[in-house]
Simulated scan of single mutants.
Amino acid sequence: MSEAVTTQAAGATIGDSEFDRDTAVTQRAPGVYDTELSAGWTIGNAVNGGYLLAVLGRALGHALPHPDPFTISAHYLTASRPGPAVVRTQVARTGRTLSTGQASLFQYDEDGREVERIRVLATYGDLDALPDDVRTAAKPPTIPPMEQCFGPQDGPAPATGSSAIADRLMLKLDPATLGWALGSPSGKGEMRSWFGLADGRDHDPLSLLLAVDALPPTAFELGVQGWVPTVELTVHVRCRPAPGPLRVSITTRNFAGGFLEEDAEVWDSADRLVAQSRQLARVRLG
């Protein structure tokens, strides 16, 4: 287990937290769910992609017979905005240990026409039924103790690009990946941070969908500033996280043609790899 882990103060609980309220869905008809996208999870004017994935993930958890996302892939078609939305789900297959379904999130444009924002395909299972056998070459990221790391609230002024979502998160970034904030990006496509929810809620599979897409873009450490919208994001949830803060490590190896990939690993307080993801993102220079 990593040294000098600072545990989050006791606060909200799973099922009774801001994150749970803001990702809630209400069934209107079979396979159809109403939701309200909260402005509290925006970056600038854009709703965070990980938060949106958690909303769709929650709807699929209601629609499918298995409780937990094992793999979920999303294509972001149009930009979502805070306000009412509807999620439509469809069951593709159900089996004894796995079930697969798809979901789309829709909003209305200014002319009252329905616009699809995101389309998801996912396979669900039961994380608690998985065997304990683990054979891995993966190792947790090396991050300084939390008290030696820095978050948005530690600067003398609001960080560039900070938005409402920063108030909902506990982020403590590794100083080695903070050169961009000081005007001296390292040139390495790396971002590492301690991660939690600001109200102290522990993590579950749905909050892991948020964690993989909540850090500043690796493009910043490449010396590229601008909006980095997600085109496609795939998340693999490997096990249910232990209580306590997570460690998130994101790397980019290739930025070309205005696009980059981000590979994320999420580790829990018991030094277990609990989630992995890859996304393709577009860099729109500011």
Rank of each mutant, 00 (worst) to 15 (best):
D109T: 13
E110H: 15
E110A: 15
E110G: 13
E110P: 03
D111Q: 15
D111F: 14
G112W: 10
G112P: 04
G112L: 10
G112R: 11
R113G: 13
R113M: 15
R113C: 12
R113S: 15
E114C: 14
E114G: 10
E114R: 15
V115Y: 06
V115A: 03
V115S: 04
V115L: 11
E116P: 10
E116R: 15
E116D: 12
E116A: 14
R117H: 07
R117C: 11
R117A: 09
I118S: 00
I118W: 01
I118K: 01
I118N: 02
I118M: 08
I118G: 00
I118T: 05
I118H: 00
R119D: 00
R119Q: 08
R119F: 04
R119M: 05
R119A: 05
V120L: 01
V120T: 06
V120Y: 01
V120R: 01
V120M: 02
L121T: 11
L121C: 07
L121N: 06
A122H: 02
A122C: 04
T123Y: 00
T123C: 03
Y124G: 00
Y124R: 01
Y124F: 15
G125K: 00
G125H: 00
G125I: 01
D126K: 08
D126T: 11
D126L: 07
L127P: 03
L127E: 04
L127I: 06
L127T: 05
L127M: 09
L127Y: 04
D128H: 15
D128F: 04
D128R: 13
A129D: 09
A129G: 03
A129C: 05
A129L: 12
A129V: 09
A129T: 12
A129R: 14
A129Y: 05
L130I: 08
L130G: 04
L130R: 11
L130D: 08
L130N: 04
P131I: 13
P131C: 04
P131E: 07
P131S: 08
P131G: 05
D132Y: 02
D132W: 02
D132R: 14
D132P: 01
D133R: 12
D133H: 11
D133I: 13
D133M: 09
V134S: 02
V134T: 12
V134F: 06
R135P: 00
R135C: 09
R135T: 13
T136M: 09
T136R: 07
T136Q: 10
T136H: 05
T136I: 10
A137D: 13
A137G: 11
A137C: 10
A137N: 13
A138H: 15
A138F: 11
A138S: 07
K139L: 15
K139A: 14
P140Q: 05
P140Y: 03
P140T: 06
P140L: 04
P141V: 07
P141K: 05
P141I: 05
T142D: 13
I143A: 01
P144K: 04
P144W: 03
P144S: 04
P144G: 03
P145N: 06
P145K: 08
P145C: 07
M146Y: 03
M146H: 02
M146C: 03
E147F: 14
E147K: 10
E147R: 12
E147A: 10
E147G: 09
E147S: 12
Q148K: 14
Q148F: 11
Q148S: 14
C149F: 02
C149L: 05
C149M: 05
C149G: 03
F150I: 09
F150R: 14
G151S: 04
P152T: 09
P152L: 08
P152N: 09
